[in-house]
Amino acid sequence: MSRLITRRRLVTTGALGAGALLSGCDKVVQVPAARRILFSGEDMQRGLQRALMNRDALAPEYSTAQMSPVFRSNGTANPDTPSYNAMVANRFADYRLAIGGMVAKPLSIPLDRLRRLPARTQITRHDCVEGWSAIGQWHGPLLGTLLKAAGIRRDARYVVFTCADRIGGTPYYESIDLIDAFHPQTILAWAMNGAPLTVAHGAPLRLRVERQLGYKQAKYVMAIDAVASLAGIGLGKGGYWEDRVNYDWYAGI
């Protein structure tokens, strides 16, 4: 083969090119414009999924026989702050769920009142962003019922959950839009697998938003605020992990 490009040189160039491409990907993410394009995948995924999905399409529900024998906990296993420990000590008798923000009448609801509200029971799959799944039973009132009771304003667009656990001194928080907030499976669970929530799983109250990943299922929910924009909250990206490590705000995939 008497050509300018030899087979060996082509193969070597190809292999070096692949290596350069791999490390090039890390450089590309540093370029703001490229980063914006890459991060726009989230909006495309959300747009496509919402277009393909009925607003009220239900996440699959399972039978008791299909439940995980052990449902692992993740994230904070115990907020362990003085105020949280005090609530645990008197079995959440002083706990109040605050519903506020863009609502006509802000509410402050004790746990025993929440437990007397009509509740939904659902056996659903919890999908962690890391890849594992666990199936458990959740029980609690619909978030939509509470938002209506508080008179959520028409110009509200998101619901923000502020939690009792702090990671590195900052309270955990999450947010969802009103499509998910009023979904018929979106509940504030106070019981799991037939018993009151344990501390590891978010006692006394956690969000279940069943068409999204695990980090959206805020535990230790203390306050719920209806807002028009996520811009002024936390670092503005709609959640603790979204703010800090660029997790997608829309976690439907």
Binding site: C25, P69, R72, C128, E130
Partner: peptide
């Protein structure tokens, strides 16, 4: 349907080295 730390995996994989992954340092979000 489910599978997590307390369940039985059929396959445990090694940690994939940085020269094979994007990004090269572990960053699940990216």
């Amino acid at each position: 349907q489910y599978g997590a730390n307390f369940d039985s995996p059929w396959l445990n994989l090694p940690h994939w080295p940085g020269w094979l992954t994007i990004p090269a340092h572990y960053n699940l979000a990216i």
